[in-house]
Design a protein around this nucleic acid. Structure first.
Lengths: 223, 223
DNA sequence: ATAAAGCACATTGTATACAATAATATTATC
DNA sequence: GATAATATTATTGTATACAATGTGCTTTAT
């Protein structure tokens, strides 16, 4: 009987519920806790060395976050993702990323432009390593700069939450080296349009970017 | 010392945490619990006749929902909403409502078209009552039909969550009878464009609709 | 041998008890 | 009288205890 090794993510003086929340969240995103897997309170409490109270509160949060599904009188399980869910998520994400880019065109500062340029270079370097996790992280950073440049905190939070849900699938997408060159080109275009303050073209570029992701992820699911 | 009368919203066999969640949520949305007001666990537990456990779990959910803010080692308070927050929320909502309308144009069924027409008539009737709550409810129903017609569950959930945050302010907007005729006209236009499957114009119409709300709400805050 | 009844167990839901901490009031000392 | 030290209290954070309920297994009766 092999147990996925949940590593407690300890941050001194963060309430245990948040520690547990982060731990379970990571476990789900990394795939250590698989969709459909039951999350039993006592079991988790023992494994993480805490009582049921913080576990329960963390589960409440994960539930609202959409990463966990409650089954009445049965308990929690890791949310299953259907093809329809994924379509819904990507549809919304496309729209919000598009908004973010267009806001960024208006609101980006000079410093942020330089930052964007730097993260884009980092991304190109990351691609040469051929390590999926490294590339994924560089990609996240690039998009993060754009998001933050939108100066809309709510938007940042919502897009991150959506991105979270497709993280596992995007990782597969990024592993496929056939996509690398296109990713770089798309990033460059997006960056240039933002730099020029050309919202119209920047929107189109990011929408294409997301569409390509979507096609790829959906074709994965069809296997 | 006058206490706002939180009415427990009892739904047989719903866990207490959800009952408490709904109760507090309504209290906040209706303004019985005011922004900045502290939510103390024992206090609430006594008033609602339950223990601290369900109260705490409800607070965790309200926190993720954004209706409550946690202050470290101090507890929860009803979320304060700043002008900037409001701008952020409306900016995102505008974009998502626009998406919903355009999806609805593609995916709406005949039944839903009739439903939309009916809720629009209901809205016009509600306006004649001059009762803000009645009008607000009819307005919510109208928008709900459009949202559901988008056939995107995630989108429905996200827009509802955003709408929640501006509920109180929109109520003020709706109270002002000078806006009524324009609201009706906007609704009619939106409905017609959706009926005709004209996504382009439908988007513009709903964006104008939200923009008008935004202007009005922001001018309220400036008083 | 099979089906039904009942019992034991596992698990969630709720309440309470205990610990830690921060804010406030009180007292003692200068 | 003012200030610092201390005690008290209010409140959150965490653990445990108790209640209710559903599930699966065992036992018994037909």
């Amino acid at each position: 009987m092999e147990e996925p090794k949940l590593q407690l993510i300890i941050d001194e003086y963060l309430p245990l519920r948040d520690v547990v929340f982060n731990t379970l969240r990571q476990g789900i995103l990394k795939g250590e806790l698989k969709p459909g897997e039951r999350l039993m309170e006592i079991h988790l409490a023992n494994r993480l060395g805490v009582s049921r109270t913080p576990i329960r509160e963390a589960i409440r949060m994960l539930e609202l976050e959409g990463l966990v599904t409650m089954i009445p009188r049965k308990g929690a399980e890791v949310a299953r993702i259907s093809k329809l869910d994924l379509r819904d998520v990507l549809e919304v994400r496309r729209s919000l990323d598009s908004l973010a880019v267009s806001l960024a065109c208006e609101r980006i500062t000079e410093e942020e432009k330089q930052m964007l340029s730097k993260t884009e270079e980092d991304f190109e370097k990351a691609v040469t390593t051929r390590d999926a996790t490294t590339i994924a992280e560089a990609d996240v950073k690039f998009h993060d700069v754009i998001l933050k440049a939108s100066k809309n905190g709510r938007l940042v939070q919502m897009v991150n939450n959506l991105a979270e849900r497709v993280y596992r699938y995007r990782l597969e997408y990024i592993k496929d080296s056939r996509n690398h060159q296109r990713l770089i080109e798309e990033h460059r275009k997006i960056m240039e349009y933002i730099g020029a303050g050309d919202a119209e073209n920047a929107r189109n570029a990011i929408e294409t970017h997301i569409d390509n992701q979507e096609k790829n992820i959906i074709s994965q699911l069809e296997l």
